[in-house]
């Protein structure tokens, strides 16, 4: 197999772009943490984390080209987390 420079470029281009976006998001996250927003801080940080996860999963883990089954499995974990959090909090938020 020959691998010319153009080959290398196509190998790197997409992932590199995703990496740059991730780095940007990371910087925003770090910076925003020092701005006092009260409860807003954790919300902003988690929102950015969620976007980072989405970018990572879609472009670096290549979910965008994956079979729908794989996407369903990836979503299933999140659905079960949601179940765990919402039902546990249904106790804690109504307790006292």
């Amino acid at each position: 197999m020959s691998n010319g420079g153009s080959d290398m470029r196509s190998l790197w281009r997409g992932p590199l772009l995703a990496w740059i976006v991730l780095m940007g998001l990371f910087a925003i996250s770090l910076g925003s943490a020092y701005i006092p927003l009260g409860h807003g801080n954790v919300a902003v940080n988690l929102l950015i984390a969620a976007v980072m996860l989405a970018v990572l999963a879609t472009f670096l883990m290549d979910l965008k080209n994956a079979k729908s089954l794989v996407r369903i499995v990836a979503m299933a974990g999140l659905f079960w987390i949601m179940m765990m959090f919402s039902l546990t909090f249904s106790d804690y938020l109504t307790r006292w």
Binding site: A33, Y34, G38, N41, V42, N45
Partner: peptide, 10 residues
């Protein structure tokens, strides 16, 4: 990262 390192920054 945000939960541990950014929790008490503001």
């Amino acid at each position: 990262y945000p939960l541990i390192y950014l929790a008490g920054r503001a």
